[in-house]
Design a protein around this nucleic acid. Sequence first.
DNA 1: TATTGACAAAATGACGAAATTTGTCAAGCT
DNA 2: AGCTTGACAAATTTCGTCATTTTGTCAATA
Lengths: 198, 198
Amino acid sequence: MDQAAIPEIDPKRARVLEGAARVFLNYGFARTTMDDIARAAEMSRPALYCLFRNKTDIFRAIALSMLDQTVETMRRELEGDRPFAERMMAAIDKSFIAMTSLVNGSAHGAELLDMKNSLARDIVISWRGETSALLAGEIRKEALRLGVDLPSQGLSAEGLADLLLDGLEGLKGRIAAVDLQREAARAIVHAIERAIRP
Amino acid sequence: MDQAAIPEIDPKRARVLEGAARVFLNYGFARTTMDDIARAAEMSRPALYCLFRNKTDIFRAIALSMLDQTVETMRRELEGDRPFAERMMAAIDKSFIAMTSLVNGSAHGAELLDMKNSLARDIVISWRGETSALLAGEIRKEALRLGVDLPSQGLSAEGLADLLLDGLEGLKGRIAAVDLQREAARAIVHAIERAIRP
DNA sequence: TATTGACAAAATGACGAAATTTGTCAAGCT
DNA sequence: AGCTTGACAAATTTCGTCATTTTGTCAATA
C-alpha cells in the first residue's frame, strides 16, 4: 500500500504517466522517445529524469498504476451484500474487461501487453497473485455462507480463482466483441457457482 | 481424416518431419536452414523440395502432425466406460501435458509455440475447435448420464470445454513442474464435474 | 529549488559489400 | 523410369561502417 501510494500522490508524476500512456498506446514502446513523453506531459525532457530514471521505469510505473487501479476497482465492486454472481460479474466487468477493451481499441495495445510480459513481468505476476487472492477470498466467503467446506469436497478457493482468471485470459484472446466477452465471463462465474454449491 | 492420412503414410515425409522437429527444437525456426533439415533427415537438400514447398510448409506439417496426434490420442483415451473424471484426466495427461512437457524441455520450445501463433495459426485454431468439440461431447454425455439438462441449468458443454482448455493453457504458463500441472488439471476437471452434477 | 539548454556517451538507422540460403535446374545413378 | 545430386542464379541475411538520433547528466538560470 505505502509503496504504491507515495508515487501516486505526486501530481507531476501522474501527469507524466497519463501523457506517456497516451503516447505508448499510439506509437508503441520502441517508437516513443523521451522527448515525445516530455511534450505529452508538457515539460522538458530533462525534467523527466528528476521523476523517473528512464523510459522503462515510466512504462513499469504505468503498468503498476493501471494494475493497482484494477485491483482497487475489483475490491470495491466485490463489497456489499448483493448476490455472489452479481458482485463477481461487476468486479470482472469493471476491472478486467474494461482494461482489455481499453488496450484492444488502441493501435499498439497488443505490443504493450507483450511488454508487460517482459519489462513488467514481476509486476504482472504480483498483480495476478493479489487478484487471485482477492477472488479466492470471495469464493471462500460464499462457500462459507452456503455451509460448504471446500477442501473436503476436493476443491480449493485458490484453484477456482486461478481457473476463473485463466478462463478470462483465454476468452480475452479468443473473443473480440466486449458483450460476448461478458457473456462468456458470466458462464464461467456460473460454472464456479455451481461447483461450490452444496 | 483423408487429408491428414495421405501425407502421414509417406515414410520419407515422416523422416523429414521427425528430423526437422529435432532441429527446430534445438535451433529455433529462424536459425535452422534447409541444409540442417536435409542432414537431419539424411537426404540431400534438393530432395526436400520434392516433398515440401519450403521451410514454412515443413513447420506447418510438423504442427499439423503433432496436433492431429494429440486429438487422436485424446479421442482414444476418452473411449471406454471408466468414470468421467478418470477418462478426462487420462486424455489431458496423455495429450496436452505430454505435448507441453516435450516442448518445455527443449531450448527453443517457446519460440516454436510463438510460431504456432503466426505461421500455423489456422492449424492451431482448427485444432482448438476439434479438441473443444471432443471435450464438449464428453461433458454432454456425462450430463446426459446424470440426467442433467445443461442449457436449463445455465450451462453449455462448449462453454465448459472452453473453460477447461483455457484453464489448461493458463496453468501451462504458470506452473513448470509436470506433476503440479497434473494436480492443477485434476482440480479443474473436478470443478467441472461438480458444476454439472444434478 | 525546480527547470532548462547544452553536451558527451550510447543507441539506432542507413546502406553497400560480402556471404549465406533458397529454390530450380539438367545430369547422373540404381 | 524414378529418385537423387551438384551446380547455379535469385533472394535474403549478415556484416562493417558511418551519420543521425536519443539518452542521461551536467552547470547555469529564473
